[in-house]
C-alpha cells in the first residue's frame, strides 16, 4: 500500500508520484473520472497501474492517497 501523490505539473497534466520509488509520471488513464465518482485503476505513462478506492468527488490537487498495485 504505497502512498502516492497526485499533482498537476507545469504543463497542466495530472502526474502521479511515488516517493519511495522516485517514480513520477503523467497519468494516462483513470477508470472513474466523473463528478460523483473518481478513482479506480490509474495508469501512468510507463505502463504501471495503481488502484485507488473510488472517491465521491474528484480531489483537489495535490493530494496524497493510499494506493494498491493495480
Amino acid at each position: 500500500m504505497p502512498m502516492v501523490m497526485l499533482r498537476e505539473n507545469a504543463a497542466g497534466d495530472m502526474t502521479l508520484y511515488v516517493a519511495k520509488k522516485d517514480l513520477e509520471d503523467v497519468v494516462t488513464s483513470i477508470e472513474f473520472d466523473q463528478p460523483d465518482k473518481w478513482g479506480g485503476t490509474i495508469t501512468i505513462g510507463d505502463g504501471t497501474s495503481f488502484y485507488i478506492d473510488p472517491l465521491d468527488c474528484p480531489p483537489k490537487l495535490p493530494v496524497s492517497l493510499r494506493a494498491r498495485r493495480g
Binding site: 501523490m5 499533482r7 508520484y17 516517493a19 495535490p62 493530494v63 496524497s64
Partner: peptide, 9 residues
C-alpha cells in the same frame, strides 16, 4: 523536494 511537495499539498 519532499518538504516542498508537502507544503504544496
Amino acid at each position: 523536494n519532499y518538504i516542498s511537495r508537502h507544503m504544496e499539498e
